[in-house]
Design a protein around this nucleic acid. Structure first.
Lengths: 339, 339
DNA sequence: CTGAAAGCGCTTACAG
DNA sequence: CTGAAAGCGCTTACAG
């Protein structure tokens, strides 16, 4: 019956485990963290004691002493785009089993919000950082660099030494679906976009490049809305496009949600798809295969981006990977009946 | 030019601020935390110094010393249901400005996963806990209770003293939409459901109660699938229902995503909605108003649940609220052209 | 209202 | 390979 210390939290500590195992706390600490400079017999005794007592290390104490927490900050623009949900799921599946805790931050495509999230979370000394794309404020860049926290950029690729990233070519993917529309004999191909984040603009570039090469580029056929992407907006974009340019015979929507909205508007207006107008989307989101007719789109490798990005970060955090790498993944054209 | 201490992290500490303000670290700590037992003049000097130096408290040190972090663990079943995204957004908007950091955990409707998340995050000593519903393993319940962390239950209400919750009556809402279908003259009303989580089963109860009261309940018209809810599944459920029971004249889908899928299937099959079959959903998710025809549904107050739940938790965490309360919010029947 | 001391539960850095 | 000491940067508990 020992007297309770003045400020004990009642929590089981490393000292308890060490005592039970008959070693010093430092040895127990080393054994539990898997440092291999520990006698296997002692290590086994420590593990057995920890197991038996139900010991769980205190993350706060660990973070304070080591200047590194086990959390990984993941910054995504939005949760309402299923794309990022798939990404986050893959990140979680990769990081969590390895002992890292993903911490989701939502920026709403707003660089001030992103900066605030960084300012708020960086003092927690996350073990790693996963961010979407490259487009952020200078202050945000500096915060990340100054923190020294390993960082991987997701969804886009770039050719810059020292930058770690995993993504795919948004531009090429935009070009691929435009080429597909051309191959279907379409000549007046419109581009409807929302949000206008960097990746959407890259898809626009792919569209322009392809149509210019075919001598069919007409800037008037681009309808770019800064509004948030939504099914309702897609409907409006289709209506507006066809009203202004009745000769349009195909529309490439920058994202499946507005494409679905456009398709539903066509259904409502009694416009035959693809006979009157072909419709293509981007991302292959849930429901696109259930539209009437099913939607042609680009299947983007977001789960793979999440997995590979997290794996890359794992290497950086553990120091097993020294040079930051950039991985470019494949997308896939999914041709369905809407084109 | 002081010599750098052995293990300094280079970080600005409370002692630096205190030194600059000419007070002791404890006084600086108290001033910064807004304790009011501090001379206003000194407090101002501390704030000024902190501001000038750009001091940011170390969350790990704070958590270790106070046995409480500023994170709030929020457990939701899924991120792929827009319902929970809206909930999380509202929680973030309420908690973040008050200095609390929401930490999202996804359970996938799996009690083992929920338990693991709890075991993993509870040692971080979150300031509060927000969980979805009441249905969890005994072990999970005990973990929560033993942690002593204030907890608010979201989305459902219950009559149990000591339980804090914010939700609405899923049963009544299910009854309301069923009544609406009856009022439209429908007599063979089917219920199609997926996921079968507690809240879906409560909606089923509302459906049964209403049809029994009308003398029109037929258990054969319930199609309950344990699969995850999806647009594709909704299509299958509609097809199966109408094939087995050609006399069905209305379907109440337990969630808008399967309702949208059912509606699209009806479009595909050329079934007139609502003439041949009326279709109703639940939750009023994005796109439901854009369907052809637009979908009748129940608008659930998930953002309000998130806001009120977080506000309740705030009171509990700060001790300004002593008795846990239960708040029941309103849902709204949205009648569109599909019924 | 203010402060010197102790402590939160770990890990680092230094010895051996 | 192992350990005693010191330290991470705060807050609590006790005095005054």
């Amino acid at each position: 019956m020992t007297r309770r210390p003045r400020r004990s939290s009642g929590r089981l500590t490393l000292a308890d485990v060490a005592g039970a195992a008959g070693v010093s706390p430092i040895t127990a600490s080393r054994a539990l963290r898997g440092e291999r400079s520990v006698d296997p017999t002692l290590a086994a005794r420590v593990h057995e004691a920890a197991e038996r007592l139900g010991y769980v290390p205190d993350p706060a104490a660990r973070a304070l002493a080591s200047q590194r927490s086990s959390q990984v900050l993941v910054l995504v623009p939005l949760l309402s785009n299923a794309l990022f949900v798939d990404l986050l799921e893959a990140v979680h599946r990769t990081l969590f089993p390895e002992g890292y805790l993903p911490l989701i931050g939502v920026t709403h495509y707003d660089s001030a919000e992103e900066e605030l999230l960084l300012r708020t979370y960086l003092p927690h000394r996350p073990a790693g950082l996963l961010v979407t794309g490259f487009d952020r404020s200078d202050a945000a860049h500096q915060l990340i660099a100054a923190s020294g926290v390993p960082c991987v950029h997701l969804m886009e690729t770039i050719h810059a030494p020292g930058m770690a990233c995993v993504g795919f070519s948004q531009t090429d993917a935009g070009a691929a679906i435009t080429s597909h529309l051309l191959s279907r004999g379409r000549r007046r191909i419109a581009f409807c976009a929302a949000q206008l984040d960097p990746r959407v603009l890259q898809r626009a570039e792919g569209y322009r490049r392809t149509l210019r090469a075919a001598g069919l580029y007409d800037p008037a056929l681009e309808l770019l809305s800064p509004e948030r992407s939504s099914i309702a907006l897609g409907a409006r974009l289709l209506e507006e496009t066809l009203q202004r340019h009745p000769d349009v015979d195909a529309i490439f929507f920058c994202n499946d949600d507005i494409a679905q909205g456009g398709l539903l508007a066509a259904n409502r207006l009694g416009l035959a798809v693809p006979a009157r107008v072909a419709i293509a989307g981007f991302n292959d989101l849930a429901g696109s295969d259930q539209m009437v007719p099913p939607l042609t789109t680009i299947r983007t490798p977001r789960a793979e981006v999440g997995r590979a990005g997290a794996a890359l970060l794992l290497g950086l955090m553990r120091g097993t990977l020294t040079a930051p790498a950039c991985e470019e993944l494949e997308y896939e054209l999914i041709v369905r009946e809407s084109t």
